[in-house]
Design a protein around this nucleic acid. Structure first.
Lengths: 329, 329
DNA sequence: ATTTGACATGTAAACGATTACAAATTAGCT
DNA sequence: AGCTAATTTGTAATCGTTTACATGTCAAAT
């Protein structure tokens, strides 16, 4: 609870000297160094970050906007962000927006009011307009989900190519009736993945059937289960399912299992993300691997660069189709 | 970028008046209110949290120490903490310690240096000594994992009773050879759950066999898989497994499935936590349900009380045995 | 002994809010 | 109108740092 003044007084030097000692940038005689060290120890002094922050007008806090902390996809990315941030003496303020505009506003305000030095947004449901407005005066990076033709730098994967690859794989192993369990198409990634899905079908002269495209607004297991129930009730049900999220795929697998439908023989399933759970299901899940940790590191690095005023380019990371039991006939 | 001074000047009032207007506690004439409002709008003024924090010597930030953000058990608790914190205008700083003392130190320093107003620790591997030292001058609550006879308030469940109940259930459905997959017994919860396990065995005159007790230092799927491999190699393998974490149980299930061992007929399995994924496995996992969200809310409320200087009591929340397919013969 | 320059230290002004306390204004009454 | 009391506003100190600038110190060079 002692402050720098008291340390200075006890050491018989000025506050400037104490500050210099603390920050280690300017030279301090070893004699005074000792005096200051002693005073600090004696008073149990700890420099206040609050005072420093005000003076430096920085908080060394980074905001990370995610729709839900419960999705392992995001937690992996967060690991990458956190490691990178810590390496540069930044801490992260995790903002679970729940895709709720009110919450989002709370967090945007933290930025406006200087409690954060930068933002990494991963929320597909983010208010684009407000985000861009904020971006005029603040450092912002988008991670995974982004806005096309916007002015905010982003790191992502090629969603269309990934979806295309997944669906092509299904076609190659003999499927012609392939369903898509997509999320809300107001999200860019959903539109892109649908595009990849359609591209593959078209390339192989397969019809695009609206019946086989299911939309869900949330990414819970139960939504995958629901989707499967719906798809199975069609008069001409698909024989394979491509899903835009492992969570949905795992729900789908569960429902198929429950109904005694054999995966992959009666129905092949592909997920997206390669979350850790996807290798624990039975059968294991074929999925598109996203470099989540790396994406987090990249986003953080981009943000730090941006904050330094350096120009930053958009980055597209590599994905990979991981073939596992759910598509191995 | 404008500050309160400029707003005051433009509005033709003093900074005190502007401040009062902002905080809405003291009375301001509607006439001056208008003037101030206009000035704020015109200057695009946003009050700086940095300045306020210094003056009030508070950060309105809460530290949450977890061993790993990847474990769904913690993310559910965090949801509870976050909701409660936000309701009281606090934000949380998520601290993934990775059970790494260096990281822990970084975060403890944030507290010492006033960047946090309180801590909720959930890390079983936390340095108890340092934590108690910190607790002498700062508000700290332990959540889930705690220290016996310590001075830090905690919220938890009755681990021994829960384990006892789980193992008793296994015995009741006919098992005599029950393995325990435990984590590191330097952790209190591990010792407590073991105690419950032994209590149940003893009560039914079953021997406690060291062979059937497996210890793992980490809580990954692979650790559960490893444990099963080890247990199956025993000359007298168990017919049921009680696991101190769903993650381990799911790994165990996976390994059993892979070896064609039928669950629950050849081997019954019980997990702990009731993470969401535990209902997606095949078979679904019998487990001890912990009220994770509620635990988070409780911990946060306790911390806020503690910070206000109110006395807080330890709280034990209810658990529940959820019987599902992995123990339904 | 004096000058020069390098280097260490001190002084004091920020950073941007909040809040006792003092001063000024207003309202209420006779 | 004149007085008092209540209410609104202003003044200035404060929170704890950092840092430009001024000052001081000391050794080397003359």
């Amino acid at each position: 609870m002692a402050n720098i003044q008291q340390v200075a007084q006890k050491a018989g030097v000025s506050v400037a000297t104490v500050s210099r000692f603390l920050n280690g940038n300017a030279k301090v005689t070893s004699k005074t160094k000792l005096k200051v060290e002693d005073a600090i120890k004696e008073l149990n002094y700890e420099p206040s970050i609050l005072g420093r922050n005000l003076r430096n007008s920085e908080s060394r806090l980074l905001l990370v906007l995610i729709p839900s902390i419960s999705n392992p996809f995001y937690t992996e990315i967060i690991n990458g962000i956190e490691d990178t941030a810590l390496n540069h003496q930044y801490n992260i303020l995790l903002c679970d927006t729940d895709s709720n505009p009110e919450r989002e506003n709370i967090y945007f305000d933290l930025m406006r009011r200087k409690l954060a030095d930068g933002i990494i947004s991963m929320d597909p449901a983010v208010n684009r307009e407000k985000l861009h407005e904020l971006a005029e005066h603040h450092a912002i990076i988008q991670c995974s989900e982004y806005t096309e033709n916007g002015s905010i730098p982003y790191v992502t994967i090629d969603n269309e190519a990934a979806a295309y690859q997944a669906v092509k794989h299904l076609i190659k192993i003999g499927h012609h009736k392939i369903a898509l369990i997509n999320s809300d198409e107001t999200f860019l990634y959903a539109r892109q993945r649908r595009k990849g899905y359609e591209k593959a079908l078209t390339e192989f002269n397969l019809p695009i059937q609206e019946d086989w495209i299911y939309h869900t607004h949330q990414l819970g297991f139960e939504n995958g289960q629901q989707a499967v129930r719906k798809l199975l009730h069609l008069h001409d049900p698909p024989t394979a399912i491509f899903t835009v999220s492992d969570i949905l795929a795992i729900g789908a697998l569960k429902e198929l299992n429950a109904r005694g439908i054999q995966v992959p023989n009666d129905m092949a399933v592909i997920g997206f993300d390669k979350i850790i759970f996807s290798s624990m299901t039975n059968p294991t899940l074929t999925t598109i691997s996203q470099p989540m940790y790396k994406m987090g590191c990249t986003a953080a690095t981009m943000l730090l660069d941006k904050m330094k005023g350096q120009p930053v380019d958009n980055i597209t990371l590599d994905h990979e189709l991981v073939i596992r039991e759910s598509t191995m006939g």
